[in-house]
Design a protein around this nucleic acid. Structure first.
Length: 506
RNA sequence: GGGCCCGUAGCUCAGCUAGGUAGAGCAUCUGGCUUUUAACCAGGUGGUCGAGGGUUCGAACCCCUCCGGGCCCGCCA
């Protein structure tokens, strides 16, 4: 049984599945595990007949912690301010919306239907009023829980609510003097003292308290989160106790997931620069792949994301799953049907007409659309023009080749009169081929057979014989499977090219 | 100091959430296809399920202890 379905085996009643990501920087592939795990739980809950709600809380009230490597030095003046009150790096709008927007586009492309809730909005509309009142009332008990479970010491003057200084805008430099609902009186290190209204976005709760407050205010029943929150004494532990002992509610059922690594680099973090933005992936991989990698792997497994040759293999594997779904192939994974369904980006799932790997080769042979279309049609593409889907996929392939593909899969077709470095026996093989190329069938098999025959007749090791063609056509010793490769070339072009490289030069 | 995850074939992993004859892919070997950017088809080899103990008629699976690897928490989020 697929992990998402297994989660609901013994679950009854209506569910609210909550996720949260802070827009403190580019939202990356690692963050996608949070939202896609939530999405798959949501869809699994619907599948098992439950009425569910799926929400994403955008933590735009979080303070900027430091000047991240991707920010310029001027941001030092904004450290400590809530993200939704800091200017965007591009000068238009706010910091949080700047990083949120591409993420929302990504969710759209990935068929994630989630209610997006900005935490700032929960504060601004008074949704936390009750929770904050309770926390102030039972402040000492909350502090005791934090000390007992996290082992940390709570200092004198600690408050379950942190006002934003109305003068300097910082949320990390204020200290609370008194509370009389709905007003919090505070002083700030900048010298200002003022009054915050807990019915407005005048301040926020610290993370460890805000989390259970969200559960309370929104009746959250299920929440996936990274295992960094799950350690003993960690934020889920303290949140759980606050939920029970302070708010008198059951904490949400957890689902701990492992992190996503960038292959060979370690855990993805936007702050360390080890990351690939979520919307970036959509530029060089078919959209379903992002879902596939999450759906296929159990949450308890860490994922190595390899945008290089690994991506090509991953897409191959996905296409194999798709074919299996239609009974045209088999895969070992007993849950392959569910994996395909959870990987769906909303469009009708159908077996691929042309494989990603094939397109990778074709776009390198044909830079122009007209010939590319013809080659695609030979390869199984049905439409008589390049529709948007295939155009999009072609662009994705090109982007992948430009930025992430390893040299071993890249090549560039040489022009008719470009120089080539060939041995005498190379030339001989090519000349032999020229003499038969008009009479053989122009298909991978016949081409391959005739080349093989020539090489055998000349008593040359196969690999060396095949290399003659690659040296002549792409200037490398290896290339795409030859019969297939040549069959996709224009026969007249090929003949001219081979004549050119085999001609005796004066 | 504490927690979580992982440990199953040479490699990557499924199977553990309902205990019931150990699985897949890759690699390897054999045969076929006259070797191609990690090609295809058919078949074979290959495992004290990290170790030990317990529960059970029966344990990869449940419980306990230990070992190895990874990640995390004890700042902030």
């Amino acid at each position: 049984m697929h992990w998402a379905d297994a989660y609901f085996r013994n679950v009854t009643g209506n569910q609210t599945i909550s996720t949260g990501i802070s827009p403190s920087g580019p939202i990356h592939v690692g963050n996608m595990r949070e939202i896609l795990t939530g999405d798959m739980l949501y869809k699994a809950s619907l599948r098992s007949g439950l009425k569910s709600r799926f929400i994403y809380l955008c933590d735009d009230m979080d303070p900027l912690r430091k000047v991240y490597p991707f920010l310029d030095a001027s941001y030092s003046s904004h450290v400590g301010k809530p993200l939704y009150r800091i200017p965007s790096p591009d000068g238009k709008g706010t910091y949080s919306e700047y990083f949120l927007a591409p993420f929302l586009d990504t969710l759209d492309a990935l068929n994630v239907s989630v209610e997006v809730i900005r935490t700032s909005n929960l504060y601004a509309t008074g949704k936390f009023q009750k929770a904050i009142e309770i926390l102030f009332e039972r402040k000492d008990q909350v502090a005791e829980i934090l000390e007992r479970i996290s082992g940390r010491k709570i200092e004198e003057g600690w408050s379950p609510y942190q006002p934003i200084c109305e003068k300097c805008g910082s949320i990390t430099t204020t200290s609370v003097k008194s509370f009389s609902s709905p007003y919090v009186e505070y002083t700030c290190k900048c010298g200002h003292s003022g009054k915050a209204d807990i019915r407005k976005d005048d301040g926020k709760m610290p993370w460890r308290i805000e989390w259970p407050a969200k559960w309370y205010a929104l009746s959250v029943t299920i929440e996936p989160f990274g295992k960094d929150h799950g350690a003993a004494g960690g934020s889920y532990d303290t949140g759980k106790a606050i939920a029970k002992e302070i708010f008198g509610i059951d904490p949400p059922a957890p689902l701990l997931y492992e992190r996503i690594f960038l292959k060979g680099m370690g855990v993805m973090h936007s702050s360390t620069g080890i990351s690939i933005a979520a919307n970036e992936v959509l530029k060089f991989a078919p959209p379903a792949i992002m879902r596939f990698i999450i759906a296929k792997n159990n949450p308890s497994r860490h994922i190595d994301f390899d945008p290089g040759i690994g991506l090509l293999n991953l897409v191959d594997e996905y296409e194999k799953y798709l074919s299996a779904y239609y009974g045209e192939d088999t895969v070992g994974d007993p849950d392959f049907r569910s994996v395909v369904e959870y990987s769906s980006t909303g469009k009708e799932v159908r077996p691929p007409e042309v494989s990603f790997r094939h397109i990778v080769n074709l776009v390198q042979i044909y830079p122009d659309d007209r010939n590319l279309l013809r080659a695609l049609q030979k390869g199984g593409y049905k439409s008589d023009n390049l529709d948007n889907d295939i155009k999009n996929e072609i662009q994705i392939v090109r982007n992948w080749l430009n930025k992430y593909a390893p040299e071993s899969v890249k090549f560039r077709m040489l022009g008719v009169n470009d120089p080539a470095t060939l041995t005498d026996s190379d030339k001989k093989i090519l000349q032999e081929f020229i003499s038969v190329m008009d009479i053989i069938g122009w298909n991978p098999e016949d081409i391959h057979n005739s080349v093989h025959e020539i090489i055998k007749r000349m008593n040359i090791p196969p690999a060396e014989g095949f290399a003659a063609f690659y040296r002549a056509l792409i200037g490398k010793d290896r290339g795409p499977r030859l019969g297939y490769f040549l069959s996709n070339l224009d026969r007249e072009f090929l003949k001219k090219r081979l004549l050119s490289v085999t001609a005796k030069r004066p």
